[in-house]
């Protein structure tokens, strides 16, 4: 089970209404390498991996949900006061006629989220390599978002998230080594 904590993982401060930046951030909200994809991928893989890596998948998946909430907070704050005209100018006209001011799991191009973004192979090494790749792609996306962001508060939160992806990648790499060691030990005895 999960228990809600009425706080963000890291504080998010947004400077001004900025629907264009919000549109770009949707890549990490509902995109292929985004936080929803990451959270759902790890949460689903954890049931059938060796015991030694269940903790990593559970804890990282849980953290990804807190990243998702940070992104939602940024997108919400950047768009809540925008007029339909401002949204249209930012390329969110189609989003507005379908969703109003609400959020939706879609990427920066407006493509809705799909489970085909993620995989679960039932092979722990194959799954963990996918997870490492996912973290590296998320890190790269955060870098592009930082490069394009013109809001210092948003950039600060994005830098935090970029660093977390680095840590997650590292923990998944260590998990691969743990499984390889275990496999080799079984071969010897």
């Amino acid at each position: 089970m999960w228990v809600y904590e009425k706080k963000l993982l890291y504080p998010v401060e947004v400077t001004t209404c900025n629907p264009m930046l919000a549109k770009y951030l949707m890549e990490q909200y509902g995109g292929a390498d985004g936080e929803l994809a990451a959270a759902l991928r790890y949460m689903n893989q954890r049931y059938t991996v060796p015991d030694k890596v269940i903790g990593v998948l559970t804890d990282i998946s849980t953290e990804e949900f807190s990243h998702l909430e940070m992104l939602a907070t940024m997108i919400y704050k950047l768009t809540k006061d925008a007029t339909p005209e401002q949204l249209e100018k930012a390329g969110l006209g189609a989003h507005f006629v379908n969703h109003g001011h609400s959020l939706f799991y879609e990427n920066a191009g407006g493509v809705p989220f799909t489970a085909t973004y993620i995989q679960s192979k039932g092979d722990p090494i194959a799954d963990l390599y996918e997870d490492i790749a996912a973290e590296e792609k998320a890190r790269a996306t955060y870098q592009w978002l930082i490069d394009i962001s013109d809001d210092p508060g948003v950039s600060d939160a994005l830098r935090f998230l970029r660093e977390r992806e680095n840590i997650h990648s590292l923990r998944f790499r260590e998990s691969v080594e743990i499984l390889k060691e275990e496999r080799d030990r079984k071969k010897i005895f």
Partner: peptide, 22 residues
């Protein structure tokens, strides 16, 4: 005070993840 809670909780998150693989 909430920021202090966020800081303290983050240390736990980070160390939990580290000890998962160490």
């Amino acid at each position: 005070l909430l920021k202090k809670v966020q800081q303290a909780d983050f240390v736990v998150v980070e160390l939990t993840l580290y000890t998962d693989t160490h």
